[in-house]
């Protein structure tokens, strides 16, 4: 079974994945385009998401080795970003973090990630908007039905041009979510 879904919040993604597993599935592959592959299973599984950037070669093997010793299976994913998917059979040890510090550090990594992507989108938006108007200038000089036809025709393109800004908004909100979680763990 394949499902398509796009997430901008890693915790919502984790919740959604676990909801699928509760229905008697096991995740076998995650593609960065948002295609999740599942297969039916009799056993009960749990999935946890970690965020680790820039892990390659020996470092990645060591990272995987530690998790695998604890019974976690690495789900193959197209690592466009640093989200790591870990799955294991449901038992009494289902967490990947056992203290506040490490959980807080996890949220810190998520903050850095959202911040970086948000900044990229913002830069891109500035470049895009500095030399193009949202609508062609000539359309404002048109009258009556001609104006409306041109306006309706151009609106989808205008919306498309707004996409980077929309993404800035989404990444800002996921930054803020991670920040709140991080602060809550640091305070008490």
């Amino acid at each position: 079974m394949k499902k398509f879904k796009v997430f901008f919040n890693i915790e919502k993604e984790e919740q959604w994945l676990n909801k699928q597993l509760e229905k008697g599935y096991r995740c076998t592959h995650v593609s960065s385009l948002g295609i999740y592959t599942f297969e039916k299973t009799d056993k009960s599984y749990v999935l946890r998401l970690d965020y680790q950037e820039r892990l390659t070669g020996e470092k990645l093997e060591e990272y995987k080795g530690v998790y695998e010793d604890f019974g976690w299976c690495y789900i193959k994913s197209t690592p466009l970003n640093g989200v790591r998917y870990w799955q294991k059979e449901n038992d009494h040890r289902n967490e990947i973090f056992s203290d506040r510090e490490s959980k807080a550090n996890y949220y810190k990594r998520l903050m850095q990630y959202s911040f970086w992507l948000g900044t990229m989108c913002l830069t891109f938006a500035f470049l895009l908007y500095s030399d193009t108007e949202l609508y062609h200038e000539s359309i404002w000089r048109m009258e009556g039905s001609l104006f409306w036809k041109a306006f309706i025709f151009e609106t989808p393109f205008a919306l498309l041009k707004l996409t980077p800004l929309l993404l800035v908004g989404l990444f800002s909100s996921s930054y803020y979510t991670a920040y709140k979680q991080h602060r809550a763990l640091k305070e008490t």
Binding site: R48, D50, Y63, V66, Y67, D69, F70, W72, W86, R93, E95, I96, F97, S98, D99, E101, S102, N105, Y106
Partner: peptide
């Protein structure tokens, strides 16, 4: 009881 991610970190 240490969890994998905590120990790794």
């Amino acid at each position: 009881i240490l969890a994998a991610g905590t120990l790794y970190g």
